[in-house]
Design a protein around this nucleic acid. Structure first.
Length: 294
DNA sequence: CGTCAGGTCTCTA
DNA sequence: TAGAGACCTGAC
């Protein structure tokens, strides 16, 4: 294990940890079900577990958990085996990324559930982050499973494909999903009918995985790359949303470069680390409003 | 009241 | 193969 930890009460304390900044991890655009608390910590639901993550000095404290879950779930979920120093060193050779990395120090790419990420990023298309979060929370409250109450709030697991499969389109649209409702429903149908095994895609190449994901209605190149990067451990995927487009054009390319050319440029430049570069650039661009017209 | 948001789909040339 | 429009919805 790359990180030492101690167990105390219902907490796991990772001492003197580097490359783990909760704000940057949970607000770099990869997840929607982690929320900031008044004390600056973050609480989220993963599978059927509720976890709170807080940084205190140089320690990261995971609350409402235990050693068994840390070893079987959280160590993998937070990708704690990753050598972030090596990635940062390689990417820092580029002067722009060097700045983005300093700015987003401690970003980690989570290893999230494939199905949940598929639905989450289908919901993200032409949408706003607060609305995406609301839609996913409503789906969970209505069709997920009640887990527990934690610090006065109720938490629900994300619904499974079989939970959504039998619903009507109207029921899904009542969860604030809008025109994406039909895509969510058909994704549930495709998974339940075993037309596509979403959990097998991580075992094939990034390129083949992308092709497979594009078979889902509502999944285009950007959403497919998000799924590959955020749930299938494919760090060479490079999702291009409006922010990444802006930041790439601002620093590296001409204005109005088409998406395919940006994609090619990024893959050639960042290669197997493109996804990590994307996360740093995205966070940098969005927090500073780089390239935003106005 | 228009505008627009972490894109994708559909239709046209 | 590329480019323009439409698209749920609700905050501003």
């Amino acid at each position: 294990m790359r990180y030492d930890f101690i167990e105390k009460d219902d907490k796991i304390i990772m001492k003197d940890i580097s490359n783990f900044e909760p704000k940057h991890v949970f607000e770099c655009g990869q997840c929607f079900r982690w929320n900031r608390e008044n004390d600056g910590s973050y609480t989220g639901v993963v599978y059927d577990k509720i976890l709170n993550v807080k940084k205190v000095g140089n320690d990261v404290i995971l609350s409402n958990t235990n050693k068994e879950d840390f070893e079987s779930i959280w160590y993998n979920y937070f990708d704690l085996d990753r050598d972030c120093d090596e990635i940062k060193a390689k990417l820092s050779k580029d002067s722009i990324l060097k700045k983005a990395i300093e700015f987003g120090e401690g970003i980690r790419i989570l290893r999230q559930d494939e199905w949940e990420i598929l639905i989450s990023f289908i919901t993200s298309a032409n949408n706003r982050i607060p609305m995406i979060k609301r839609a996913l929370e409503t789906l969970s409250e209505k069709y997920g499973r009640f887990i527990d109450e934690y610090n006065g709030k109720k938490y629900y697991s994300f619904p499974k494909a079989k939970d959504l499969n039998s619903l009507s389109l109207d029921e899904i649209k009542k969860c604030h999903t809008g025109f994406r409702g039909k895509y969510i429903l058909s994704a549930a149908n495709i998974i339940e009918n075993k037309e596509i095994d979403i959990y097998a895609i991580k075992n094939i190449s990034t390129e083949d995985g992308r092709k497979e994901l594009l078979l889902f209605p509502g999944v285009g190149p950007k959403v497919a790359d998000c799924i590959l990067l955020f749930s299938m451990n494919k760090p060479d995927a490079f999702p291009i949303d409006v922010w990444v487009k802006r930041v790439m054009e601002y620093f590296y390319l001409d204005e109005d470069t088409n998406l395919k050319d940006i994609q090619k440029y990024a893959q050639d430049k960042f290669r197997e680390l493109a996804g990590f570069a994307q996360q740093y650039l995205f966070y940098y661009a969005r927090e500073l409003g780089i390239g935003k017209k106005k």
